[in-house]
Simulated assay, not measured.
Amino acid sequence: MKLNTLGLPLKETEVLVTELNILLANFQVYYQNLRGLHWNIRGKRFFDLHVKFEELYNDSQLKIDLIAERVLTLGGTPLHTFEDYVKNSKLPIGKNIHNDEEAIVLIVNSLSHLLKIERVILSQSSEINDEGTNSMMSDFISEQEKTIWMMSAWLEQEI
């Protein structure tokens, strides 16, 4: 079995890079959705949600950078064009959303989709003892699960 300079198997690491790039594309769409929600939200909850959406997109921006840097660390090239993001993302586009509940539902659904991708990556990285990717995915998963719980509580819905 051929190993890269990190001691990880080449073939499996290439598969992992592909999955990380898919996560990157989905995160970019999620980030842009959050920007749109931040700009377009209206109503009596404007002040609270405007700030919350900014907090979420700033966090997403940090995660996007971490994902891209992990792709580079593993020897890959991060996706970096809007064409690549749209092609590789399965997230719905949140266009012209002004309603608070519609916005929160979009966030919950988007995070649920991101979690699915992250769990696949976590499983794959665990199989090859890639602790760097494991740690990053574990951190993302625990934070996003908490956000889903909080957003679901706001919506008065069960998880």
Rank of each mutant, 00 (worst) to 15 (best):
L20T: 06
N21K: 00
I22Q: 15
L23M: 15
L23Y: 10
L23H: 10
L23E: 07
L24Q: 00
L24F: 01
A25F: 08
A25V: 05
N26M: 08
N26T: 09
F27S: 13
F27M: 13
Q28F: 08
V29R: 06
Y30N: 06
Y30C: 10
Y31M: 00
Y31N: 03
Q32G: 02
Q32H: 10
N33Y: 11
N33S: 13
L34C: 12
L34M: 14
R35G: 00
R35I: 13
R35E: 06
G36T: 02
L37Q: 08
H38P: 06
W39L: 13
N40F: 04
N40H: 11
N40D: 12
I41D: 08
I41Y: 10
I41K: 12
I41C: 09
G43C: 10
G43R: 12
G43Q: 05
K44W: 12
K44D: 14
R45I: 00
R45N: 15
R45P: 03
R45F: 11
F46N: 06
F47I: 15
F47P: 05
F47K: 13
D48S: 14
D48L: 12
L49G: 01
L49H: 08
L49W: 06
H50F: 12
H50C: 08
H50I: 08
V51P: 05
V51E: 13
K52V: 06
F53A: 04
E54C: 10
E54W: 07
E54M: 11
E55S: 11
L56Q: 13
L56G: 00
Y57H: 11
Y57F: 14
Y57G: 06
N58R: 14
N58Y: 09
N58Q: 14
D59Q: 13
D59H: 11
D59M: 11
D59P: 02
D59R: 13
S60N: 11
S60K: 11
S60A: 15
S60C: 08
Q61S: 12
Q61Y: 05
Q61V: 00
Q61N: 11
L62N: 09
L62Y: 04
L62E: 09
L62C: 04
K63V: 02
K63H: 02
K63L: 09
I64E: 01
I64C: 02
I64N: 04
I64T: 03
D65N: 11
D65C: 08
D65K: 07
I67T: 14
I67K: 03
I67P: 02
A68H: 02
A68T: 04
E69C: 03
E69Y: 03
R70M: 09
R70F: 00
V71E: 07
V71T: 07
